[in-house]
């Protein structure tokens, strides 16, 4: 009896420890990432809790070195589900469409110049979806290009392209606003 119990506790810490480390490392980035979709901290927390709940159910099914793309993919899916469930996706989609069109307008048009911080976020929001997603995965999640390519199911080269163009567009618009 005791021996059986021991054996269990010996193998257990490995996955439990892995889970713990993953939680430590990605909890906050995931919440920030989820916040970009849902806006409300409580919602973001629920989504991230759900992401880790899934991870705990699928420990052993997820490879350790692909954990980051997995986490952020699941997080995005859960966030999207959440928006759909709360009937907010429709408006988000409309916004996105508008924004992609507006990106062709004069740089910085319609933006408030109150503070750089919120301006940067607005600029990011105006990027085409793929560029925005790649940049979020790079800057919020801290993923490598390779990990981003796995999460977005595209090539590493394309990730480099998306991030570069996203950054350049934002940078140009930012400078244009500064000069204005």
């Amino acid at each position: 009896m005791v021996r059986i119990a021991r054996r269990q506790t010996q193998s257990m810490p490995e996955s439990a420890q892995f889970f713990h480390q993953t939680l430590e490392r990605y909890e906050k980035p995931l919440i920030r990432y989820a916040l970009n979709f849902v806006g409300q901290l409580d919602d973001a927390r629920d989504i991230v809790q759900d992401v880790f709940l899934r991870l705990s159910q699928q420990l052993g099914g997820v490879e350790a070195d692909r954990i980051a793309p997995w986490l952020f993919t699941v997080c995005k899916n859960r966030a999207t589900d959440h928006l759909r469930k709360h009937h907010r996706l429709v408006t988000t989609e409309n916004d996105t469409l508008d924004q992609e069109e507006s990106a062709t307008e004069a740089p910085g048009a319609g933006l408030e110049r109150e503070e750089d911080a919120s301006t940067l976020r607005q600029l990011l929001d105006r990027l085409p979806e793929k560029q925005r997603e790649a940049i979020q995965l790079k800057f919020i999640a801290g993923l490598s290009y390779k990990e981003i390519s796995e999460a977005m199911k595209t090539s590493v080269g394309n990730v480099g392209y998306l991030i570069h163009h996203g950054i350049q567009t934002m940078k140009e618009q930012w400078h244009a606003l500064e000069a204005a």
């Binding site: 909890e27 906050k28 980035p29 919440i31 920030r32 916040l35 901290l41 973001a44 927390r45 991230v48 809790q49 880790f52 750089d116 911080a117 940067l120 976020r121 990011l124 979020q136 800057f139 919020i140």
Partner: peptide, 9 residues
């Protein structure tokens, strides 16, 4: 900017 906020679970 993007990493502002320290909220965890």
């Amino acid at each position: 900017e993007l990493n502002e906020g320290d909220a965890g679970l």
